[in-house]
């Protein structure tokens, strides 16, 4: 396959992975106003739990199905027992709280799984390369791309076309009025945080064959995901989607063609957006 084409596909795959992480991060910010520094930890936790499920059952699919559940429950517990008490305080308190939790999760995974770099194997049916666009490309990555697009479509349908989604949008736009017309906002907040966490956990599992599974993975993915949500626009699903693809492509193509500059490109993009379009490319300006 043409080098450029395969790099572009790699960029899309990385972008789609970022989207699974950034979608939750962005919705959590939009609805709860929380910059969740533990979101990378949810990703890492999902990856490790998925690894264990795979070792026990031997099934990648079961890992994908089961690992997000405990991660979602942990996220729900953090929201219900900790974050909820801080909503009346400065938003930065919530940031700091989630930062504290990220320490605890790092210790947790190092205690249970150790500090080695581990990996999740692709499911046996997806370990080959298939012919695609006049060349060969790993089938797992293609499947991942398809899966990510499917998740994006389902999320979009939920947010834009269901009653639950309408509640989430109402909560993002104006939490006080949403509460005033009788929406159960606390339940909405817990569910969003839990679903965002579960999605991050799922992302950790499906990223396992590509990124590996290790302590420190949390920061590794958290910072690009932040860049995505800021560039795309905090609180916007569309922003998270296009932001992910943009950052995924920029980073991957940058590494391939401008290896010395690659690390700077995404940060420069972030700085430019923050300075000239603080609401992000797809965001609506929010009062601070």
């Amino acid at each position: 396959m043409d080098l450029f084409l395969s790099q572009a596909l790699n960029g899309l795959v990385y972008g789609i992975l970022l989207f699974l992480l950034a979608a939750g991060l962005s919705m959590i910010f939009g609805l709860l106003g929380v910059v969740n520094l533990a979101h990378g930890s949810f990703f890492m936790l999902g990856a490790f739990i998925g690894l264990s499920v795979m070792q026990i059952t031997g099934s990648f699919w079961l890992a994908m199905l089961l690992a997000p559940i405990p991660v979602g429950l942990v996220a729900a517990a953090i929201e219900m027992f900790f974050l909820r008490r801080l909503y009346r305080r400065d938003r930065l308190d919530q940031v700091l709280l989630t930062f504290g939790f990220s320490f605890i999760f790092t210790d947790l995974v190092e205690t249970v799984w150790g500090r080695d770099v581990l990996a999740i194997d692709e499911p046996p049916s997806l370990q080959n390369s298939i012919e695609f666009l006049g060349g060969f490309y790993p089938s797992y990555r293609l499947a991942l791309l398809g899966f990510g697009l499917l998740v994006a479509f389902v999320l979009w349908r939920i947010v834009e076309h269901t009653r639950a989604g309408a509640m989430v949008r109402a909560g993002v736009d104006d939490p006080a009025s949403a509460m005033g017309i009788g929406l159960n906002v606390p339940l909405l907040l817990t569910s969003t945080f839990a679903l965002g966490g579960a999605l991050a956990g799922l992302a950790g599992v499906v990223a396992g064959p590509i990124l590996g599974v290790y302590s420190g993975l949390d920061i590794e993915v958290l910072i690009p995901a932040f860049i995505v949500v800021v560039v795309g626009g905090l609180g916007s699903l569309k922003g998270a989607f296009f932001g992910s693809l943009l950052i995924g492509m920029t980073d991957t193509l940058g590494r391939a063609y401008l290896p010395d500059m690659a690390m700077f490109l995404t940060y420069l993009m972030l700085i430019a957006v923050l300075l000239f379009r603080p609401a992000g490319l797809f965001g609506i300006a929010q009062p601070q």
């Binding site: 910059v35 938003r91 930065l92 910072i223 932040f226 700077f264 940060y267 972030l270 923050l274 601070q288």
Partner: peptide
């Protein structure tokens, strides 16, 4: 920028310098 925006922008610049130190 204020609040969360300030926080993110300082993080972004720090990461930029960190990348420079690495590269």
């Amino acid at each position: 920028l204020k609040g969360v925006g300030f926080f993110m922008l300082t993080l972004a610049f720090a990461q930029l310098l960190f990348s420079a130190a690495l590269k």
